[in-house]
Design a protein around this nucleic acid. Structure first.
Lengths: 153, 153
DNA sequence: TATTGATCTCAACCTTACTTCAGGTCTCAA
DNA sequence: TTGAGACCTGAAGTAAGGTTGAGATCAATA
């Protein structure tokens, strides 16, 4: 009980504990630390110790990764927080709203791709001139004026 | 005119021509060939020559990649076609329908993630027990019975 | 105390999808 | 025929996101 109680009232976490509780491997913790996404201090015997907020940081990292945000960008976002603090509720609101936007764009892009695929499954032309699937630039100027589909390449 | 006309009536394509017309680099063509996704024969001077269907193959590869299919899987799918032929309209129908399914699953998964994110943006708890964002397993058993969100870890 | 199990560091390796480089050869238009 | 540009091969490099291994030390339990 003493170990768990100690953790519960805010004492240091060992690498193994963080790994178990956050679901990432110890090697990944090292990796994140090298990249500056998390921080640790050292015990007298040079072993890493983590404060409890590392769990929240790792949670944020994992969610951002699910969204598809690369680690470097996650790191940049975390680094921009004052004092390098772990995101509080307000910080999270900003970060997640931003990431939600990225996610939504990915969804829209994939949805458009799916629709183009639907239009092409029966056709199968894959024409370099006429096939929307082969002309991803359409994504950028969906409804602009001028000829796009039938112009020569 | 002779060069273009020759290409148009079905003669061999050089690596550079294929690269220009398909939009992938020559080095990528080498790479695809090494992976078995495309094929070439050789000129008397040991230079690669491609038959025109390589353009269609590369088109299929590029579309599949946009969908998010890894090259290895694209290669497997192409290899399963009789005689290693380039997908005809019927083949394309089967392939693309299959890939459309994968794509749709990705879209649904991301959409669900976005909805979970929406529910969590204002909350910001990221609780290991209660936060849907932190429990991706929900994806697999969305509507099954039994407690899932509040059970201890 | 002794011995596991957990950690330490640093380098090397993995996968995917290619690109770049070096040194040498082809091809083709002038 | 000759020179520019295209092509050849094999090895190495790149980027992301880690994992694995070796050899050594720490820490906690029997």
């Amino acid at each position: 009980m003493s170990k768990i109680a100690a953790a519960d009232i805010g004492k240091a976490l060992t690498p193994g504990e963080v790994a178990r509780r956050s679901g990432v491997a110890v090697s990944a913790l090292h990796f994140y630390e090298k990249k500056g996404l998390i921080h640790s201090y050292r015990s007298s015997g040079n072993q890493r110790r983590y404060s409890r907020d590392v769990l929240r940081r790792v949670a944020v990292i994992k969610v951002a990764q699910r969204i598809g945000i690369p680690l470097a960008e996650i790191g940049r976002a975390l680094a921009e927080l004052p004092d390098g603090r772990t995101p509080n509720a307000h910080d999270w609101k900003r970060l997640s709203a931003h990431w939600r936007h990225d996610l939504n764009e990915r969804i829209q892009s994939l949805t458009q791709l799916r629709d183009q695929l639907d239009g092409c499954i029966g056709c199968g032309c894959l024409s370099i001139n006429a096939c929307r699937l082969r002309n991803p630039l359409d994504e950028l100027s969906e409804d602009g004026p001028g000829p796009r589909l039938l112009e020569p390449d």
